Amino acid sequence: MAVIDLHQAAGDERSLSAAFVDSVLPDLLVHYGLERGTVLEQAGIDPAVFQDPGRLLPLLDVMRLFLVILDACGDPGLGFEVGRRVRPRSYQVLGYVILASRDLDEAIARLMRFEKLSGNLGRTERHDSDTEVRLEWHCPVEGEPARFVREAAITGWVTFMRPLMPADAAPLEVCFRHPAPPDAARYQAALGAPVRFAADFDGVRLAPELLAAPLRSADPGLGRMMEREARVLLADFDAHGNLVSRARAALYRRLSAGEPSIEGVAADLGLAPRTLQDRLRRQGQPYQEVLDGLRRSLADIYLRDPALSLTEIALLLGFSESSAFSRAFRRWRGTSPVAWRRRRSPT
């Protein structure tokens, strides 16, 4: 487990939709011969989060889940395998508004406009010239896990769009900034386009004439309807943001100073305490649940670090003493932090 990278993700407000994760996870686990319940338990993910298709998973939880899978499979192409399993339903409204687009040009415009709806994880930029259209994806994750996030996003783009295009339509090149993996040949075979590693950007290069290619799934009526729905969802997202992730980030910044109060977190977010509590409840995650969820996630990370004592972990989580942490951990996991750490320590 890359403890330091996960630790940095704890205070990040970015997120990914639970619907995306749930759409790729079943086939991915079958591919690697893993059991869903075991993986979710090891990642500390409550299966109930997938019952709400509108739920957004904080970046910390997404990274923990896929790093658990990486620990089990050891496949450097994990992100690529995630992207290969993307389907229109993976992106929900964003996917269907793209699906109904007139042509690739309109699909790209809608992707960039409504990208936040898939979870506000990364950002796409478009650069046009006489010879090519370049779509660049800016990844928020640094360090070794970044390659998996980049490959999942960009492979997902190509996997999603290729069946909608004419049979002979393909990107000029699919580009990744990280070095090539040992089995790079599988990338080109699956994506049907040249793949360049150690490139100067993450994304795809397209021929300008490809933009006018009509999509096989084009449906102007459905497109207009889905775009109206996407505009409403985007306005709500811009007005309130992913409040749960913002609250988690504010809580993370306050944890090491002791038990974080809702008054302090609300002040950090520019809200009245009652307003914050009401909005979190409307999103299905009351304040205490958000705090417990963050502490639970961080506890799993800290317990993997043998350099941290239980007392140090308790203080990092905002508990006044290790006994309070132990009681809370038993409530979350049904076992003691010592036993949890022992089960997950390398033999």
Rank of each mutant, 00 (worst) to 15 (best):
W340F: 15
T335G: 03
G318T: 02
G33F: 05
L67E: 11
P214H: 08
S217C: 10
A2N: 15
A109Y: 01
E259L: 09
S15A: 15
E173H: 03
R295W: 07
E132L: 12
A43V: 05
A199W: 05
F201S: 04
E81C: 02
R282T: 11
G122N: 14
R327C: 09
M161P: 00
F80H: 11
L291W: 04
V174A: 03
V338Y: 14
E106S: 12
I4W: 13
D305W: 09
P166R: 06
L215S: 03
S261D: 10
T159H: 08
P145R: 05
I4S: 13
D61Q: 14
A239H: 14
M225W: 12
V30A: 15
D292P: 03
A212M: 00
I313A: 13
A10T: 06
E106D: 14
L135K: 06
R150W: 01
A185I: 05
A199N: 06
L303E: 05
G258Y: 11
V3C: 06
D300C: 13
D5K: 03
A247D: 01
D71G: 00
P337R: 02
D183M: 11
G74I: 05
A48F: 08
V232E: 12
Y287H: 09
P194R: 04
D128A: 14
Y302T: 05
R295T: 09
A239E: 14
G334H: 14
P181A: 09
P145S: 06
A314P: 00
E81K: 04
A9S: 14
E227N: 09
L191F: 10
T159D: 10
F80I: 09
R87H: 03
D219W: 08
I108V: 14
L67I: 00
A189Q: 14
I313Q: 04
Q277R: 14
L59G: 01
A184N: 06
W137F: 15
V204G: 02
N242Q: 10
S261M: 10
P194V: 03
V68D: 00
A307Y: 06
L172R: 12
G44M: 04
D202P: 01
L303G: 04
F160D: 01
P220C: 06
A10N: 03
R162M: 12
F319M: 01
D61R: 09
R36F: 09
A107Q: 05
L111P: 01
L251V: 13
